[in-house]
Amino acid sequence: MNESSSYLKKLEDFLGGTFHQDIDSPEEALDEFIHEASKECLLSTIKDCQGFLNSTLTIQKKESFIENNAEIYFPAISLNPIQWFNQIIEEMKKAVKMQ
């Protein structure tokens, strides 16, 4: 498995495992992930998320990837998938600083 498919698999697991159909809200799901994850896990997840955003994939492919792996109805939160993804990265960064 090459490096790019490795972080994509990790992101699939993170998005699908955190933002699935049984959550009450995306905010609560992220809060739960942050609360349960170790600092090392958060740092690794942030690194994978940033690697994904900085990858050579097109914006459309990035948005499709996020939409296909997170059970979020983006029109309801008034954000596109990339904007939302950037927000969750920032929330994880804040949590790391507070740990």
Rank of each mutant, 00 (worst) to 15 (best):
N2M: 13
M98P: 02
L79K: 15
I59W: 11
P75A: 09
E36I: 05
G16T: 03
D24E: 14
S55Y: 01
E27R: 11
K9R: 15
F33R: 00
L43D: 08
E27S: 09
I23R: 09
S25N: 07
F65L: 06
A29F: 06
E40S: 10
Q83V: 12
A70Y: 09
F65I: 00
E3G: 05
F85T: 05
E36N: 07
I82T: 12
I34D: 06
K39Q: 07
E90P: 06
I82Y: 05
E63Q: 12
T18Y: 05
N54R: 02
M1N: 14
I59T: 14
M92C: 08
E91R: 10
L15S: 10
K39G: 01
D31P: 00
I34K: 05
Q99R: 15
V96M: 03
K10R: 15
E3W: 09
Q60E: 15
N86I: 01
F65K: 05
K93S: 02
A29N: 10
S55T: 01
D24P: 02
T58Q: 12
K94P: 04
I82H: 07
E27A: 10
E3I: 12
E12K: 13
D22A: 14
L30E: 02
I77S: 07
F33N: 03
E36S: 11
H20R: 10
I88R: 02
T18R: 01
I46A: 02
F52E: 05
S5E: 15
Q50A: 03
K97T: 06
N80C: 09
T58M: 06
H20I: 01
K61A: 09
F52D: 00
F33Y: 12
T56D: 10
M98A: 15
G16C: 07
I23F: 02
F52W: 04
L30W: 05
F52K: 00
K97C: 04
I88T: 02
Q21L: 14
N69D: 10
E28I: 01
K39N: 08
H35W: 12
T45G: 03
I66E: 05
D22G: 14
L15Y: 12
E36Q: 11
G51V: 04
L42F: 08
L11I: 07
N54G: 10
L53W: 04
S44E: 09
L43G: 01
L15Q: 11
S25Q: 06
W84S: 08
S6L: 14
K61C: 01
D31G: 06
F74V: 03
D24F: 13
A76R: 14
F14I: 08
K62C: 04
E67Y: 00
L8A: 05
D24L: 14
Q21M: 13
K94Y: 07
L42R: 01
Q87D: 14
F52C: 00
K10L: 10
K62E: 04
E3L: 13
S55C: 00
T56L: 12
I34P: 08
E91K: 11
S78I: 10
L30M: 08
W84H: 07
I72R: 03
Y73A: 04
I88S: 02
P81F: 04
T18Q: 01
L30T: 08
K39R: 09
K10M: 07
E28N: 07
M98F: 11
T45C: 11
